Amino acid sequence: KKEGHWDCSICLVRNEPTVSRCIACQNTKS
């Protein structure tokens, strides 16, 4: 897992550190 990346708590997609919403389901970063 790269530094700063985060996994969506709903759909588990891994997102870039620069985005505050999931690219797949638009869930906000927790």
Score class of each variant (00 low, 15 high):
Arg21Lys: 13
Val19Ser: 11
Glu3Asn: 06
Thr18Pro: 03
Asn27Pro: 10
Ala24Asn: 13
Asn27Val: 03
Thr28Glu: 13
Thr18Gly: 05
Ser20Asp: 14
Thr18Gln: 15
Ile23Leu: 10
Val19Thr: 12
Arg14Gln: 15
Cys25Tyr: 00
Ser30Ile: 02
Val13Asn: 15
Thr18Ser: 13
Ala24Trp: 05
Val19Met: 15
Thr28Ser: 09
Val13Ile: 12
Arg21Gly: 05
Asn15Met: 07
Thr18Trp: 05
Cys11Glu: 12
Val13Cys: 12
Cys22Arg: 00
Arg21Glu: 07
Trp6Gly: 09
Asn27Arg: 06
Ala24Thr: 06
Val19Gln: 12
Thr28Pro: 12
Arg21Pro: 10
Pro17Ala: 02
Asn27Glu: 08
Cys22Trp: 00
Glu16Pro: 07
Ile23His: 12
Lys2Arg: 11
Asn15Asp: 02
Arg21Asp: 10
Asn15Pro: 02
Ser20Tyr: 03
Asn27Gly: 08
Ser30Asn: 10
Glu16Thr: 02
Thr28Ile: 11
Gln26Phe: 08
Thr28His: 13
Gln26Tyr: 04
Thr18Cys: 00
Arg14Ala: 12
Val19Leu: 07
Arg14Lys: 13
Ser30Arg: 07
Asn15Ile: 04
Arg21Met: 10
Cys25Gln: 11
Thr18Met: 05
Arg21Phe: 09
Cys22Gln: 02
Val19Tyr: 08
Val19Cys: 01
Thr18Arg: 03
Lys29Tyr: 00
Pro17Ser: 06
Asn27Phe: 06
Val13Arg: 04
Gln26Ala: 11
Glu16Tyr: 03
Pro17Glu: 08
Glu3Lys: 15
Thr18His: 08
Thr18Val: 02
Ser20Trp: 03
Cys22Ala: 02
Cys25His: 04
Val13Pro: 01
Ser20Phe: 12
Cys25Thr: 00
Cys25Met: 02
Ser20Ala: 13
Pro17Trp: 01
Lys29Thr: 15
Asn27Ala: 09
Thr28Gln: 09
Thr28Leu: 10
Pro17Arg: 02
Ser20Glu: 10
Pro17Asp: 08
Arg14Asn: 09
Lys1Tyr: 00
Val19Ile: 08
Lys29Ile: 03
Lys2Phe: 09
Cys22Val: 03
Cys22Phe: 01
Val13Tyr: 03
Ile23Phe: 11
Arg14Phe: 03
Ile23Val: 12
Arg14Gly: 10
Val19Trp: 06
Ile23Thr: 15
Asn15Phe: 00
Gln26Thr: 09
Val19Gly: 05
Asn27Tyr: 10
Glu16Leu: 04
Ile23Gly: 11
Ile23Met: 13
Thr18Phe: 07
Lys29Leu: 09
Glu16His: 06
Arg14Asp: 07
Pro17Gln: 02
Ile23Lys: 14
Thr18Asn: 14
Asn27Ser: 14
Thr28Ala: 14
Ser20Asn: 11
Arg21Ile: 15
Cys11Leu: 00
Val13Met: 09
Gln26Ser: 10
Glu3Ser: 15
Lys1Thr: 15
Asp7Cys: 09
Val19Asn: 08
Cys25Val: 05
Ala24Val: 10
Arg14Leu: 14
Arg21Tyr: 14
Glu3Ile: 09
Cys25Phe: 00
Cys25Asn: 01
Val13Gln: 07
Ala24His: 14
Glu16Met: 01
Arg21Asn: 15
Lys29Val: 07
Arg21Trp: 00
Glu16Asn: 09
Glu16Gly: 15
Ser30Leu: 05
Ser20Lys: 04
Asn15Ala: 00
Glu16Asp: 05
Cys25Leu: 00
Val19Asp: 05
Lys29Ala: 11
Ile23Pro: 09
Lys1His: 07
Asn15Gly: 00
Cys22Asp: 03
Asn27Lys: 11
Ala24Lys: 11
Trp6Tyr: 01
Val19Ala: 10
Arg21Gln: 13
Thr28Asp: 15
Val13His: 14
Ile23Arg: 11
Thr18Leu: 08
Val13Ser: 10
Ala24Ile: 09
Gln26Asp: 13
Cys11Arg: 10
Arg21His: 08
Lys29Met: 12
Val19Phe: 04
Thr18Ile: 11
Asn27Leu: 07
Trp6Leu: 06
Lys29Glu: 15
Gln26Pro: 04
Cys22Met: 02
Lys29Asp: 13
